[in-house]
């Protein structure tokens, strides 16, 4: 029984990182109706740049975390300017945007490969004091707690900003109708740029937390989370922020539970994606989708 609960907790921890990754994915989708397939590459670059900052400049982890998150946001701006903005006035911009985001993903990954090398790299030993807590038979570390606190904290802050801040309301207005937003005097281009900045900063932050959690980073670390992120936002409902959070945690838990119950780690992805298929059949709009079916 305690093994079971331990696994649930682990699933919750990693699920919160999936949620943080997916929230940026879904934010851009909600505003632009475009899947940004370079999101996973930004996730990778965020993690690797945080590691690089820590190792070469000797900055404390929290400082490199902040700088690398900022850097990821700036990468998002570059991404929007290069891959999406020039195509926006074309009729088929959804498909061409999808393709150009794949191109940017490949460019970003190649850049990561050149700069950071192909090997899996780790944060230096003893970078931070990790305490281990025991409750009955349950074990978790201070690092795990910090990761989940940061992930949940960022998600809560984003949700509050979207709900209450002026820019957040403008983002939601652009998501509903770009033309109406323009009629209201909202500078749509700037709001979209800001959306990309926030989305990519969160994606980068997820990459850093992911790297800290497994203490393994490499230029291909985005691969494993790319499809999972997509699955998470479909599971939660495309464009829904609470859906992405819930979907991420549900996905993380289903992964670890599969391993715990069957004892076979090779089944992990198969079961998680089977759950996704089931949801798509039973409730096509996702867990928290608004009833309307997305054709994605």
């Amino acid at each position: 029984m305690s093994v079971f609960i331990q696994q649930l907790i682990n699933g919750f921890f990693i699920g919160s990182v999936y949620g943080l990754f997916a929230i940026g994915y879904t934010l851009v989708f909600g505003v632009l109706d475009i899947l940004n397939l370079a999101h996973a590459a930004i996730f990778t670059l965020g993690g690797l740049s945080a590691l690089w900052l820590t190792r070469t400049t000797g900055l404390p982890v929290w400082a490199s975390f902040c700088l690398a998150t900022l850097f990821s946001g700036l990468l998002g701006l570059v991404l929007y300017r290069v891959a999406f903005a020039p195509l926006r006035r074309r009729a088929d911009s959804n498909l061409s945007g999808l393709i150009s985001s794949i191109a940017m993903a490949i460019i970003f990954e190649a850049g990561a490969f050149e700069i950071f090398g192909a090997r899996t790299v780790r944060f230096p030993q003893g970078m931070f004091a990790v305490r281990v807590y025991h409750f009955d038979s349950l074990t978790f570390t201070s690092l795990q707690l910090e990761i989940v606190a940061i992930a949940l904290g960022l998600m809560v802050v984003l949700s509050l900003c979207l709900k209450h801040s002026r820019t957040g309301k403008a983002m939601r207005a652009v998501a509903e109708s770009e033309t109406t937003a323009r009629l209201l005097g909202i500078p749509v281009e700037r709001i979209i740029s800001e959306t990309f900045f926030v989305s990519s900063a969160l994606g980068g932050a997820a990459g850093i937390l992911f790297g800290l959690y497994f203490n393994a980073l490499g230029p291909d670390m985005g691969r494993s989370i790319e499809l999972k992120g997509l699955a998470v936002i479909i599971l939660g409902g495309m464009g829904s922020i609470p859906g992405a959070i819930l979907g991420g945690i549900a996905f993380g838990m289903s992964e670890v539970l599969t391993v715990a119950l069957t004892g076979m780690s090779s089944l992990r992805d198969a079961v998680a994606f089977s759950v996704l298929l089931l949801i798509l059949i039973l409730k096509p709009s996702g867990l928290l989708g608004r009833g309307r079916i997305r054709q994605a």
Partner: peptide, 14 residues
């Protein structure tokens, strides 16, 4: 063409 998913007050604010 009101912003259907947003509240009446949010529409006015925007």
């Amino acid at each position: 063409r009101v912003l259907a998913g947003m509240s009446v007050r949010e529409n006015l604010e925007l």
